[in-house]
Design a protein around this nucleic acid. Structure first.
Lengths: 208, 208
DNA sequence: TCACAAACGCAACTGGAGTTCTATTAATGG
DNA sequence: CCATTAATAGAACTCCAGTTGCGTTTGTGA
């Protein structure tokens, strides 16, 4: 994976090497100096690449981070199958919180979320990421419907969004710390609400 | 309100006028050019104030926005009292969503949230804002406890955080649109979970 | 193998954010 | 009212992110 450049006319060889060097340098810079201390010139120097190349291909640090994020999250996530709805949900929320507890993953995520507020490129990358996560998680809900654990008219996407909301809101909005406890509670609360039929289809997400 | 400057030695008269002019200019600039198009020089010119004054007193656009945010959210919010726990919760979530649906309030909020990811000043302002909101909302939970609607060992702060999470996560993380429906569902889900005792005190929020 | 152009390197340039210094204004206490 | 000095104004400056132009390298298709 990660060979070549998607929308590029000449994605092989040198271009790919440049890309790898830049992404590597970016990760190192982010780890050592944080986001505010990571400039295009530093990345260029560290990667052994001309500054103009960075500006031409990406345009800014943000864009490079977004591409790094898109790369890192391109792999499909496994859908849990513990046998129970709440068990599956707990697996999902725990894996999400686990990812957010990893420093580097968290750092990249932070940047993308911070950018997404006013940067359409970051917004798109982030939304697409969650679309994939939600689609994957929806399978868990659909199985729960088939097992009769939740009502048939349950909206799978809304259930998954509800399950993810608490710890993301803690991190990015209220500024509270998170732990695996938050994952477990989010799963419990969501499972309960879903069983009680609080996520009916209709009115929400008109384009299924 | 908003007369003078808090930590200032000479807060009256000119200083206060400058402040007002700057805040007014900031709001106009944000409305017309958005965040990325709002520079210190533009604000200075529009406010009829020297650029140096802005840099001395604030240091950057972000800081001015944070002060604007802190000002605007300084007023205490009324605590609803509809007679039922779920009714009170719904009032709370609806007023929050209502605020987020107002363009200017939303714009300011966006900036602060986006900044808070990597800017301690914004982080503090945002966290303090939610501390107040949560403290206010907690009263609703405490009354529910007294009425016997929810278990006695319910953690009020966690209940309020849970109620707010869904729409904030939609806006700032997944990037989905919000409506008053999201407010109602958040209230329903949270009320149900609280009644079932899913927010026990202990383990969370060690410093009450 | 060869021609073409995509992608890159390099150096000079530009523009504006942020700083510094000094002079001026006006809020405050007595 | 007056002296003091906090706060502001203004011009000139520095510095670096981002741009431009052009020459060089190298991937790609024939």
């Amino acid at each position: 994976m990660a060979e070549g450049v998607a929308g590029s006319v000449r994605p092989g060889g040198r271009t790919a090497r440049t890309r790898e060097a830049v992404m590597g340098a970016l990760v190192e810079e982010l780890s050592e100096h944080g986001y505010s201390g990571t400039s295009m010139e530093r990345i260029a120097t560290r990667a052994g690449v001309a500054k103009t190349t960075l500006y031409r291909r990406w345009g800014g640090v943000d864009q490079i981070v977004v591409e790094l994020f898109t790369d890192a999250t391109a792999t499909a996530i496994p859908v849990p199958d513990t046998g129970s709805f709440e068990g599956d949900l707990r697996e999902l929320t725990r894996s999400a919180v686990g990812l957010l507890l990893d420093p580097l993953a968290r750092a990249i995520f932070d940047i993308v979320v911070g950018e997404a507020v006013h940067n359409p490129v970051a917004r798109t990358a982030l939304t697409q990421f969650f679309d994939r996560r939600v689609r994957g998680g929806a399978i868990v809900v659909e199985r729960a419907v088939q097992r009769g654990e939740v009502p048939a008219d349950t909206d799978p996407a809304e259930v998954i969004r509800q399950a993810g909301a608490p710890y993301f809101a803690r991190i990015y909005v209220t500024g509270d710390p998170i732990s695996l406890q938050d994952a477990d509670r989010a799963a419990s609360v969501t499972a309960l609400a879903a069983r009680e039929g609080l996520f009916p289809l209709q009115a929400t997400s008109p384009a299924g």
